[in-house]
Nucleic acid binder design. Structure first.
Lengths: 134, 134
DNA sequence: AAATAACCTATTTAGTCAATAGGTAAATAG
DNA sequence: CTATTTACCTATTGACTAAATAGGTTATTT
């Protein structure tokens, strides 16, 4: 299940891609266009900055902008920056402590297959695939 | 993200499939074999019964058993009985109120495609695929 | 100096997950 | 017909997370 953080964050990225020509885009504009509380977006955008996906500039004329071309972002990297690693079950998390039943677990292969499917889907899709003007 | 309810429930179904010849299987046996609290399994098994996936018989010699052959269960129907409809975002829930931005939403097609992918994966897989002795 | 806009810390509210606790009803064995 | 077994039922707890809201501080430009 994708939370609002990931969903809103993705919409911010799309918005930034569509307004890349305008230089820095103030968060207020994005919030107004997307109909999302600016205050809440601050939290989301902050994580996008600290992940190195976008950059922010303070002061008049400031705002946010992408760091690279929309086609160079995968949807997966955007979602993982906001939601953490997307694994269907805890035992597949990268840093998880190994389950002592893993060897004989009859469900683990199923979750692993679904994990691959999900990963390939989101890391195969590009931000530019969701943008009209790319 | 699949919760313990879905994961444990699936393991119960596999356990029942592997012990189908034994007639009714008491929950205590399943709990011991799977290393899961019997008390917690009661909640899960209760939902499997009310969904019509398994049946339970009280008293000595009682227990639970499958209602049909393992190959007639999809993994999807088992997980949905325990976790509810598995949609990646709220706006794709079957009974959800339609989002007023749906028409112009640039992310909705992405979620819908992922939803299809997930649905096809889990409803394509069969319980018998996870069972050794089927 | 004033305006703009990002940045920062904290708090709240509601809901869900994962489990535990203690009891009641049904069925069989002796 | 009583004891045992086993499913079934209702309630509660504690920890955690999601989804925001609030109010202030720093940086930059005009």
């Amino acid at each position: 299940m994708i939370s609002t953080k990931g969903r809103y964050g993705l919409r911010v990225m799309i918005d930034l891609a569509e307004h890349a020509e305008d230089g820095h885009v103030p968060l207020k504009e994005i919030a107004d266009r997307q109909g999302i509380s600016k205050k809440y977006l601050e939290i989301i955008v902050k994580e996008l900055v600290s992940s190195g996906l976008i950059s922010g500039v303070s002061g008049k004329g400031g705002g946010y902008r992408l760091m690279k071309a929309p086609s160079d972002y995968s949807i997966g990297e955007i979602l993982e920056a906001l939601e953490g690693p997307m694994s269907p079950v805890a035992c597949l998390y990268s840093g998880a402590q190994p389950c002592d039943r893993a060897d004989s677990c009859q469900t683990l292969p199923l979750w692993a297959e679904y994990d691959r499917l999900t990963h390939d889907f989101f890391f195969g899709k590009r931000l530019s695939d969701l943008v009209k003007r790319n």
